[in-house]
Every structure is written in structure tokens, then in C-alpha cells.
Amino acid sequence: MRRLFVIVSGVLLAAFALQFVFAAVGAFTEPGGDDSYALHSITGMAIIPALCLLTILCAVLARAPGRVVGLTVLPLGLVILQALIAMLAGAFTDASGASTPVSLTIGGLHAVNGIIAVHVVVGVMRAAKMLADDVPVPQGVA
């Protein structure tokens, strides 16, 4: 089960990395529109949350220490925060739906939160590898 925890956390990391690619696809699609971000939306709202839940399950079944399980739960919370940031940014558009300086600033936090989530998932994967190799997971890792 510990090797599966490593594999699933690696797949989760790959999905998070692909999110940046899918965001760039949306940003550089001409003409742009809501459909430009379809891959980003589907991955962020369905695939990544499902992988987060699977990773949490694997951590529990691998009998990971509590702090590792807690670290494994954190990406799901950050994914929920991503959706909230996107909704909040949308709430600050003008009457025609165009971006405002406030909505753009809040939207920028969506990218920052995504970077933080990737770093957390790297930590999850590092902890999973240590657990699979029967190496004690130091406090700083998880």
C-alpha cells in the first residue's frame, strides 16, 4: 500500500503540473472565452479533487503518521480555496463582466495558491517515498 501511496501522489503531482499547462492553453487561445479554460476547469474541479481523496485514502491505508496524513489532506483544502478565489475574483468584475483591478488582483492569488499546492504535493510525495522506503519521516518534511 505504501508504494501505491507513492504512485498516487506522483499522479496527483503530475495533474497539478498539467493544471499550469491547461491554464496557459486557456490564456493563449485566440479568440478566448470560457471554453478556452475547459481542460483547466475539468481537471481542477473533478480530476484533482478525486486524486486528492484517493491520495488521502492511500495515506491512511499505508498507515502513514498523523502529520503525513494531515499534509496529504492539505491539497484538498487548497483546491477548495482555489474555487473560492476564482468565485471571489468573478464577484469583483464590472457590470459587463470585464475584469477590474480588484478582480485581477484576487485572480492572481489563484496562481499563487496553485504554486503553494504544488509545493505541498511535492512534500506529500517526498513523505510517501520515505514511508515506502521505511525511512523515518523527519518533522520538517511533514
Rank of each mutant, 00 (worst) to 15 (best):
P49Y: 07
I115V: 15
L57F: 14
P138E: 04
V112W: 09
F28T: 15
V141R: 05
L18A: 13
R2A: 11
M87S: 12
M45Y: 09
M125I: 00
F20P: 06
R3N: 12
V121C: 10
R63I: 00
A24K: 13
V8P: 00
A27Q: 15
G70A: 15
V79W: 01
V73E: 09
G32Q: 13
S41N: 12
L57H: 02
G26I: 04
I48L: 09
T72R: 06
R63Q: 14
D134M: 01
V137C: 07
R3T: 15
L13Q: 08
L57E: 01
G107V: 06
L109C: 06
M125E: 05
P136E: 14
A46T: 13
L84Q: 12
I115W: 08
A132T: 02
A128M: 03
S96P: 03
I85P: 03
P65V: 04
I56Y: 02
F22N: 03
T72G: 11
A23H: 07
Q82T: 06
T55N: 11
T93I: 11
A27C: 01
D34E: 12
T43W: 09
F92Q: 08
A15E: 01
L104E: 11
C52V: 01
L74M: 13
S36E: 07
G108Y: 06
L13W: 01
A62D: 01
L39N: 12
V137G: 04
T55G: 03
S103A: 07
I106C: 10
M87G: 14
P65N: 10
K129I: 12
F92M: 07
F92S: 03
V69S: 06
A38N: 10
V11T: 10
R67L: 05
P75E: 09
D134I: 01
I80H: 00
R3V: 14
G108P: 08
L57G: 08
L84S: 11
P65K: 08
M125C: 13
L51G: 07
P31V: 04
C52A: 11
H40G: 07
A23I: 08
G32S: 15
G114W: 08
L18N: 11
D94L: 00
D35S: 15
V60P: 00
A117T: 14
V11P: 06
Q19P: 09
A128E: 01
P136Y: 05
A62V: 03
L88W: 10
I48E: 04
V122W: 05
R63S: 13
V122M: 10
L109K: 01
Q139E: 15
Q139F: 10
F28K: 10
M130F: 06
G108V: 06
I115K: 00
F92I: 02
A91W: 11
I116P: 07
A89Y: 05
L39V: 05
A132R: 04
N113K: 02
A59T: 07
M45V: 13
T72I: 06
S41G: 14
P49M: 07
M1A: 13
A15V: 04
I56Q: 02
A17G: 14
A83E: 13
G32F: 04
S36T: 05
A83W: 09
A62E: 05
G97K: 05
G90Q: 08
M1R: 12
G10W: 06
A23Y: 12
V121Q: 11
V73C: 15
T93S: 10
P136M: 04
G44I: 09
L61E: 10
Q19K: 01
H119M: 15
L4W: 14
